[in-house]
Design a protein around this nucleic acid. Structure first.
Lengths: 223, 223
DNA sequence: TGTACATCAGTGAACGCGCGTTCACTGATGTAC
DNA sequence: TGTACATCAGTGAACGCGCGTTCACTGATGTAC
């Protein structure tokens, strides 16, 4: 299997491929390990596509460190997993904002936002699953929805919808929050179905996305 | 805890509440156990709200039988869990069909279908999760989407959409399958968000459901 | 009416696994005097 | 320039858990002769 650079036998199960042991961080640089742990966790999360398949032990192995070291930086496994997601939440919001900003008008901006949303989900399935498809019981206490998602991407969406309503001079103006949730349901619904049911005989994916995005927005337009 | 009818000590961990041992089925009636197992599994699934929390051992304990007995009727755990769901799929479809049948016209039928869908999901969260929110890797080979979901509820939905298109004399007629998927995305999206994020500051639930159902159907109507 | 045998519905005990987490410790590096 | 000490980034070994699953078996019940 792996070559032995030294004559020493590994104490662990001998068949396991072994990552070279990481060099100990210099004094005062302990935080470096935190960053490496996050990156390794993210890689494993993407590779395995399953948060349960990512164990503390596997993360430690990937970093080249023993498992108790993880606990120098994260209180428990859940905190680690969610710390990885925090980064994705930010990117998720940024991507949508950027997509919307490039559009010529608010309505098209809304469409672009939706496209970006779906694209993100399809390209980052496991992160998307953790962010939006984790059941409440598995979510740590500190992750109230208001704080984590609501405060950024969702509020941006509500604002974008409000802009549309104004732009279209809708009368009477629908409730922006209500519309935002409806749109969110749409894109989330499609994203999660596509992720969960790859064997379903889907029609052409891009055409489907366009249809799904168009239909509710059509419903919004003045008649 | 539990009273001891006999003086015998239980061989198992003494703190555990113990279900009385089930009477052995008479000759030729082995299949009775299968039914009891399915019922117990379903109860546990609902009680715990988590398919991982339902263990073979727990099911056996609930039935009043030892765990190897489960294997007399199910090849493995996954088969058991999904067997429970099969029953729900059927009920799920039936409920939607019944709701649609009671409506005065196809468009309202579509709305009723949507309401019934969401209601089912909210009332049977764990089953809904297993049916529609299980990641592909966890789904047994035999559960191709075409066979299990596609063949019933989804095809009924496509047919209902086609009826609407005809009823409304839409010209040009949109693709029924495409529209069906869009509607499915909507209701699934809302259902799963409501299930997964109970802490989100949702507006009035019923009003929200109406909005979500109305918007895409508005988009469908002739202008 | 009796008995050997087959069948069937289970049991009891164990295997082996991988996991999250804890605990007491080590040994390199910097710092104070 | 030397040395005692504190600090810090880790390590190694183990605990205890619950799980899915397997294996050899038991003992009640029916059946053939």
């Amino acid at each position: 299997m792996t070559e032995h650079a030294t004559a020493e036998a590994k104490p662990e199960a001998s068949g396991t491929p072994v990552t070279p042991r990481r060099r100990r961080a210099p004094r005062g640089q302990g935080e470096l390990l935190r960053e490496e742990i996050l990156e390794a966790t993210e890689r494993l999360l993407i590779a395995t596509g399953d948060q349960d398949a990512v164990s503390i032990r596997a993360v430690a192995e990937a970093v080249g460190v023993t498992s108790p070291s993880i606990y120098l930086h994260f209180a428990d496994k859940m905190e680690l997993i969610f710390a990885v997601c925090e980064r994705h939440f930010q990117r998720f919001d940024e991507i949508q904002e950027a997509a919307a900003a490039a559009a010529p008008d608010p309505v098209q901006g809304l469409m672009e936002r939706g496209r970006a949303y779906i694209k993100f989900g399809l390209e980052n399935p496991e992160q998307y699953r953790i962010l939006f498809m984790t059941k409440p019981a598995q979510t740590p206490e500190s992750w109230t929805f208001e704080r984590v998602i609501g405060s950024v991407a969702f509020e941006h969406l509500v604002a974008a919808v409000a802009e549309c309503i104004e732009f279209l001079k809708l009368d009477p103006p629908p409730d922006a929050q209500m519309v935002a949730i409806t749109l969110w349901s749409m894109v989330h619904g499609l994203t999660s179905l596509l992720l969960n049911h790859p064997k379903f005989p889907w029609p052409d994916r891009d055409a489907l996305i366009e249809d799904v995005l168009t239909m509710p927005i059509q419903g919004l337009l003045p008649r």
